[in-house]
Write a protein that binds this DNA or RNA. Structure first.
Lengths: 142, 142
DNA sequence: CTCGTCGTTCGCACGAATTGTGAATTCGCA
DNA sequence: TGCGAATTCACAATTCGTGCGAACGACGAG
């Protein structure tokens, strides 16, 4: 299985490399994000973090998520209105979103190299994000 | 040139068909949206509407945009944090977003039929949205 | 190990974007 | 024209996120 999420140790190194310090709060968040495919919101991470570290501030969660985003170790996702979702998977991938239950899932998409754009001459595309909306397997089963 | 935006007259019919009334405020917004490729925010539409109808309420703009979205005559776009953008083009298309100037442009994409999804078995995809991020022609020219 | 220096935490207040509420108004059918 | 239901709009509330600053704590130098 491909390694997709940064390990806490790697994030520690990345923070140190940027002159940032390692605090227990940050380390806890690194652990909560590691191999986390749930695309949590800041609130969700705050709730999870509060279990193991009561008193941690929502402000600190936002701060750390912002720092991780700034150094490219985390992607911030805005599918619609509502809170942002955070994705520790920084490999080249895309998302499916279930319109019924709202679940977000990482997917790998083949064929993107053959997409052709009509209507924006001379636009230099650096990145591509694809979102599939529909119904997930478990919601379709009901 | 393909007709991509609903005409005010069509929107009037759509509203009537749904039991909604036609007010001067709504009619003005229909006109402002017709053939509008600027992907305006609610605030931008409010500003534009205020020129021709001083006193119109931002609340009414939101209300009308929500109604249009609900009946599928308008798409609501959330590219990142910040205000939602509204797209009166309801044909099957996608978007390019310039990271420099923030401009949003409609594009038509070929090859989407050949995309294959790995990682979400049995997900039934109803809709697809693709966003290309990069640099637009005019920003690249600087 | 101790110290001093920044970076960090976190409560609070603020800000932006959007929605709830309800009284006054107005559309549109009869 | 008149009635009833939909609409407008000001105001307040909500949601999500950020600015600020005092107290705290990580960590390299000595």
């Amino acid at each position: 299985m491909m390694e997709t999420m940064c390990t806490p140790a790697e994030l520690v190194d990345a923070f140190r490399a940027n002159g940032l310090k390692i605090t227990p709060q940050r380390h806890l968040l690194f652990e909560l994000l590691h191999d986390n495919g749930e695309h949590p919101t800041a609130e969700a991470l705050f709730t999870a973090a509060s279990v193991r570290m009561p008193g941690i501030s929502l402000r600190t969660v936002y701060q750390t998520l912002t720092d991780l985003s700034a150094m490219g170790e985390l992607h911030q996702l805005a599918f619609d209105t509502g809170p942002a979702h955070f994705d520790p998977n920084v490999t080249d991938h895309h998302h499916v979103v279930c319109d019924v239950c709202g679940a977000i899932q990482d997917v790998y998409v083949d064929g993107t190299d053959h997409l052709t754009i009509e209507g924006a001459p001379d636009f230099r595309s650096d990145a591509l994000s694809i979102v599939f909306r529909g119904t997930c397997a478990s919601c379709a089963a009901t």
